[in-house]
């Protein structure tokens, strides 16, 4: 075979490879669009007024779960106390070797990190940042948590504002990395891991003698019924991923229990304070949950969380 033939064959193979890559790119991008996008067909790919009209009809949909940082702030605001025994021990990092377990525990460790830092637990904050770093490295997230970030964390360990900013940056680095590299399924699994950890910490901090219908921490747990729909929508965007299918099964089990909780909300009235320019969304919510349902929820969350961490 002469050099010219080899070059020709190589070029053809490269062209085919690039075509496949291009097609894959288009197909993954399509998953982000709403159903109305299906109206755009190849026949319309002619640059004319109709195309401009069609492009203008495209809609991007985002589903946003509470980040680990927000989860920790919600817990603290609701009166949660710090209990390190509830966190996933950092010694467990070596157990997580699959993409699914590393993604789930990146979410879990980042939530533990946020929780520890909000309660000014300096050593735990450093330990959980290192555990999160190991999970991120295992998933191939380059520079999400690098030595510079660890150094900044240690240098500012008594400055909570800086610590919060560093944690926020690491969460953003991870989520944007998955987005840029077309690994949205893993990004979703990370978020669900963090969400389950938040639920696990919260439900285990509720005292046994508490009035279930008049407790802020219990209310925030019940509020997760509102978030369930978002969790499903996020997971359903990545149904072609086997790990996502497994996680959906867990969330469906939780939904069965959350369905037994009743929430009714009055109409929302926005009222803006002219001095601070902050609007308060005024509304009333009625919640009803039986002690039996709370026990079922607690047990199910424990089983799912232990399944993710052990």
């Amino acid at each position: 075979m002469n050099i010219r033939k080899i070059l020709q064959k190589t070029s053809s193979l490269l062209a085919i490879l690039l075509l496949i890559l291009f097609a894959a790119g288009c197909s993954s991008d399509k998953q982000k669009k709403s159903e109305s996008d299906d109206m755009i067909t190849l026949d319309s790919l002619e640059i004319n007024e109709q195309l401009i009209k069609d492009v203008k009809a495209v809609k991007e949909i985002f589903y946003s779960l509470p980040s680990p940082l927000e989860t920790a702030m919600i817990l603290k605001q609701a009166g949660a106390k710090y209990n390190e025994e509830l966190l996933n021990p950092t010694d467990n990092v070596s157990k997580y070797v699959t993409n699914k377990s590393m993604a789930l525990n990146l979410g879990i460790y980042t939530t533990d990190l946020s929780y520890a830092s909000l309660f000014d637990q300096t050593q735990a904050t450093i330990n959980y940042m290192n555990a999160s770093k190991k999970m991120a490295e295992g998933l191939g997230i380059l520079n999400a948590i690098d030595d510079d970030i660890i150094g900044r964390l240690e240098a500012n360990i008594n400055n909570r504002d800086v610590i919060m900013d560093i944690i926020s940056e690491t969460i953003m680095n991870s989520s944007s990395f998955f987005e840029e590299n077309d690994r949205q399924a893993l990004s979703t699994i990370v978020l669900v891991g963090g969400w389950i950890e938040g639920l696990y910490i919260a439900i285990n901090l509720v005292d046994s003698d508490v009035d279930l219908n008049n407790n802020e921490l219990v209310n925030r747990i019940i509020d997760q019924k509102l978030t369930l729909g978002t969790v499903f929508n996020l997971l359903n965007q990545n149904l072609d991923n086997e790990d996502v299918k497994n996680v959906i099964t867990n969330v469906e089990e939780l939904k069965t229990i959350f369905d037994k909780i009743e929430i009714s909300t009055s109409k929302i009235e926005p009222v803006t304070d002219s001095q601070t320019n902050i609007t308060t969304l005024k509304s009333k919510t009625n919640i009803s949950m039986s002690p039996k349902t709370f026990s079922e929820l607690k047990e199910k969350i424990k089983v799912i969380r232990n399944n993710y961490t052990l």
Binding site: I61, D223, G229
Partner: peptide, 14 residues
């Protein structure tokens, strides 16, 4: 001309 929507739960007290 394009639009986008984001769905998120916001929590009491925050």
């Amino acid at each position: 001309g394009e639009d986008a929507e984001l769905y998120k739960t916001f929590y009491a007290g925050q």
